[in-house]
Every structure is written in structure tokens, then in C-alpha cells.
Computed example of a mutant assay.
Amino acid sequence: MNHPTKRSVLITGAGSGIGEATAKAFANAYARVLVQDVDAARVERVVGELTSAGHDASGCVCSVTNEEALRAAVEAAGGVDILINNAGVPGFNASIEEIDYAAYQRLYDIHVWGCFAATRAVLPEMKERRFGRIVNIASNRGQVGFERSSHYASAKAASIGLAKSWARELAPHGILVNALAPGVVRSAMTLGYGEEALHDEAQTNLVKRWAEPEEIAAWLVFVTGPDGGFMTGQVLTPNGGDPIVGI
């Protein structure tokens, strides 16, 4: 169902997986979708599919860490009302001894500074309009830790901390900020660990299955839409009960 007021949306890492599904979900509800990804072919494909379906979509090919390029794309699009900080890379089940500085820095550049760069790029217009919705895509591993890939888990925990802090900082400007921490989702990134690993992780939750990217996208449309207007500084957890955590 379309929202009564058409908005513009920037989704980072929208060339595949959750990001692509989110771009398509928002295209059915909002007038303009700005598709960001570092992979030019992916951006071209997703934008092409959206425009062929009659949606208003444009692309931004750059690293999510490039604030200048993001800001230029946002300005060219006429501003952004909603930002989904989705861009991310996997940790590949590395032990602490296997994580060198380059691997650590890459995770933090994309998951943490990427959130900063994209958010800073959209803030001028949001503040001027006194309206904005921002969601950082975190992970259940950012809530309870993980026995492998501690750099990934800690970077996702940082994205939750950013959402809570920005919710406080930006509320006076009419901007709501939340995080969404999904459990296992079937996507190109998670399939990089192998089909068997994906199946095994799905068995650790209570519903015994993985989520499809479209299920996560539906949550994002909800929390940034009219029915989500009383929610800020929160962590949404579509994770199949893996884990059940306290406040």
C-alpha cells in the first residue's frame, strides 16, 4: 500500500540482497529511489529494473565511505527524506588471530564510517525540511556477540550505538533514527559462507528457517512510514528468536 505522502529514499549497498529488496519495496511506496552501490553493474541493473517498472529511480556508484560523492548524488536527487544505511561486507568467520589491521579497518570503514558518511550527506536537507528517517542495518551478532568475526560483530554493535545516539541528537530536527538487527537472511553475502552454513545457522533460531530479503525490506518500509512515527532510538529485531534479548 502506498504511503499518503511520497518521499525520496537513499539505500546504500542496494545492488543486491537486503539493499536491492529494500529499493524495490520502497519504489512501490515512494516517488524516488536512489540506489547506491560500489558495483556499477549492479546499480545499472537495479535502476534499470525499477525504471522499466515505471518507478523513479537513479543511481550512485561510489564507495559508501565517500561522503563527497554521496552528498553530490543526494543534491542531484533533490534531497533525501529517508536513509537506509545498509552497505556492508562479511567478516568470513575469522578468529581474533586471523584479523589483521586491514581486515579490521575495512569492516569499520564500511559499517561504521559508511553510516557516518551517508548520514552526514543527507542531514542538510533533512534538517531544513525538519523531517527525516534513518535506519542503520545492524545484526543480531551486534547485540550478543559472536564467537568468530569479532570485528564484524563489534562494527554492527557500533551501528546500533550510532542509531541510539543520533536519535537523541537529531530529534529536535524532526529526524527519527532506529537500527534493525536481523538474524540470518538468505542473500549473496550469506551464501558466500556456503549453503550448508546458512542452513545450520537457520536451525539455531526458533522458527528454524532463514529470512528472505523481502521480509527485512517490509520492516524498513513500516518503521520509516506513517505508522512508525512514534519510534526512535530503538532496535528492531526480526531474527526468528535468535536471540531473545532484554532491553
Results as ranks from 00 to 15, higher is better:
residue 118 A to R: 00
residue 121 A to P: 10
residue 122 V to I: 15
residue 123 L to M: 13
residue 123 L to S: 14
residue 123 L to F: 12
residue 124 P to L: 06
residue 124 P to G: 06
residue 124 P to D: 05
residue 124 P to N: 06
residue 125 E to P: 01
residue 125 E to Q: 15
residue 126 M to L: 07
residue 127 K to E: 11
residue 127 K to N: 10
residue 129 R to H: 12
residue 129 R to Y: 06
residue 129 R to W: 04
residue 131 F to H: 07
residue 132 G to Q: 01
residue 133 R to Q: 13
residue 134 I to C: 13
residue 134 I to Y: 09
residue 134 I to T: 11
residue 135 V to M: 04
residue 135 V to N: 01
residue 136 N to E: 09
residue 137 I to E: 00
residue 137 I to P: 00
residue 138 A to K: 00
residue 138 A to Y: 00
residue 138 A to I: 06
residue 141 R to Y: 00
residue 142 G to N: 03
residue 144 V to N: 01
residue 144 V to K: 02
residue 145 G to S: 06
residue 145 G to V: 03
residue 146 F to M: 06
residue 146 F to C: 04
residue 147 E to P: 07
residue 147 E to G: 13
residue 147 E to L: 10
residue 148 R to I: 07
residue 148 R to Q: 09
residue 150 S to W: 03
residue 150 S to G: 07
residue 150 S to K: 02
residue 151 H to M: 09
residue 152 Y to Q: 03
residue 152 Y to I: 03
residue 152 Y to H: 09
residue 153 A to D: 08
residue 154 S to C: 08
residue 154 S to K: 01
residue 155 A to G: 08
residue 156 K to A: 03
residue 157 A to K: 03
residue 157 A to W: 03
residue 157 A to H: 05
residue 159 S to M: 13
residue 159 S to W: 02
residue 160 I to W: 01
residue 160 I to K: 01
residue 162 L to W: 14
residue 163 A to H: 03
residue 163 A to W: 02
residue 163 A to V: 02
residue 163 A to C: 07
residue 163 A to Q: 06
residue 164 K to Q: 15
residue 165 S to G: 15
residue 167 A to T: 05
residue 167 A to I: 07
residue 168 R to C: 12
residue 169 E to M: 07
residue 170 L to W: 12
residue 170 L to K: 05
residue 171 A to E: 10
residue 172 P to V: 11
residue 173 H to N: 08
residue 175 I to Y: 07
residue 176 L to Q: 15
residue 176 L to C: 11
residue 176 L to V: 10
residue 177 V to D: 00
residue 177 V to M: 01
residue 178 N to G: 03
residue 178 N to L: 04
residue 179 A to V: 02
residue 179 A to P: 10
residue 179 A to H: 02
residue 179 A to W: 00
residue 179 A to Q: 03
residue 180 L to E: 11
residue 180 L to A: 14
residue 180 L to D: 12
residue 181 A to V: 00
residue 182 P to T: 05
residue 182 P to I: 04
residue 182 P to V: 04
residue 183 G to C: 06
residue 183 G to E: 01
residue 184 V to S: 05
residue 184 V to W: 00
residue 185 V to I: 15
residue 186 R to V: 09
residue 186 R to M: 08
residue 186 R to Q: 14
residue 186 R to P: 06
residue 187 S to L: 15
residue 188 A to E: 14
residue 188 A to V: 09
residue 188 A to R: 12
residue 189 M to C: 07
residue 190 T to C: 11
residue 190 T to H: 07
residue 190 T to V: 14
residue 191 L to G: 02
residue 191 L to P: 00
residue 191 L to S: 08
residue 192 G to P: 13
residue 192 G to Q: 08
residue 194 G to A: 02
residue 194 G to M: 00
residue 194 G to L: 01
residue 195 E to S: 03
residue 195 E to K: 04
residue 196 E to C: 10
residue 196 E to M: 13
residue 196 E to W: 10
residue 196 E to T: 11
residue 196 E to H: 10
residue 196 E to R: 15
residue 197 A to R: 09
residue 197 A to T: 14
residue 197 A to M: 11
residue 197 A to C: 08
residue 199 H to A: 13
residue 199 H to E: 13
residue 199 H to S: 10
residue 199 H to F: 09
residue 200 D to A: 13
residue 200 D to L: 06
residue 200 D to V: 02
residue 200 D to P: 01
residue 200 D to M: 07
residue 200 D to G: 04
residue 201 E to Q: 15
residue 202 A to N: 14
residue 202 A to R: 05
residue 202 A to Q: 10
